[in-house]
């Protein structure tokens, strides 16, 4: 078997050997659906769309993905299993990619499990299915970028709490770059083109177009390259 798949399989199964996975899934589903109804006022919109559902994804991810990613490497370091893993005939790159893909698969599962809300709008009205599909693709890609950053920061420490806080901070900076309140503030200080350049580095700027049903190639490349850069740093951090 391909060593990357071996690592992926072990890691993915590992989520379900402890209650952590189930708790995460429950919290994620309650948070994403709850925010849609109680903060996003799903019914008041009177439209058959999931705009008010996907609107919150960047914010939910900000806290929940570091919770998944914080243990990726810090736990291996703390328990010493990293010594086992890196003395098996597996390269660092394959180990990093295998563990990352396992976590991404898990997050994708969590995102897909929100499908009852899709059934709900389908039952209540006539939504644009293309927009919903594009939004889901955008959400999964964005989750991958968040996760890449968390995987990298977890390789810097053997303490999960430090790993969590570092991940939230880094993701928060990237998220805030595109937040309107923040860019309004920036536009007081800088010319518009600088503010625009900044917001082009934000998750929300790229995710927004997905939620409108537009899949820009450059947005797909953006999310994939954030993950790739983070994973490259991750590999460098682990090689001694």
């Amino acid at each position: 078997m391909n060593p990357t798949i071996t690592v992926l399989k072990r890691e993915f199964a590992g989520y379900f050997r402890s209650p952590v996975a189930y708790i995460f899934l429950i919290v994620f589903l309650i948070a994403s659906i709850g925010l849609t109804f109680f903060v996003g006022n799903f019914f008041d919109g009177q439209t058959a769309s999931l705009q008010s559902f996907f609107l919150f994804h960047p914010w939910i991810f900000l806290f929940l993905i570091p919770a998944v990613g914080m243990r990726l490497w810090s736990e291996e370091k703390r328990s010493g299993t990293i010594e086992l893993l890196f003395t098996l005939p597996i390269t660092t790159t394959r180990a990093v990619v295998g563990k990352y893909l396992a976590a991404w698969l898990f997050l994708s599962l969590a995102i897909v499990l929100t499908f009852p809300i899709v059934l709900t709008v389908g039952y209540l009205g006539n939504p644009d299915w293309g927009v919903i599909l594009a939004s889901y693709i955008g959400s999964i890609l964005m989750a991958g970028s968040y996760l890449g950053i968390c995987s990298f920061t977890s390789a810097l420490t053997q303490n999960q709490i430090i790993s969590f806080i570092l991940s939230v901070l880094v993701c928060m900076v990237i998220l805030f770059l595109g937040w309107s309140i923040f860019s309004d503030f920036l536009s007081v200080l800088f010319p518009v083109w600088i503010v625009d350049a900044f917001s082009n580095f934000s998750f929300t700027t790229h995710f927004d177009s997905f939620t409108k049903g537009i899949i820009h190639l450059h947005s797909v490349i953006y999310f994939l390259s954030v993950s790739a850069i983070a994973l490259t740093l991750n590999i460098l951090a682990l090689e001694r």
Binding site: R10, G14, R17, S18, S79, G80, T81, E83, L84, T87
Partner: peptide, 15 residues
């Protein structure tokens, strides 16, 4: 070609 037993013999605890 190497078999290695690290000190404190780490293994994945949940398996």
């Amino acid at each position: 070609r190497i078999g290695y037993l690290p000190e404190s013999s780490p293994a994945y605890p949940e398996m």
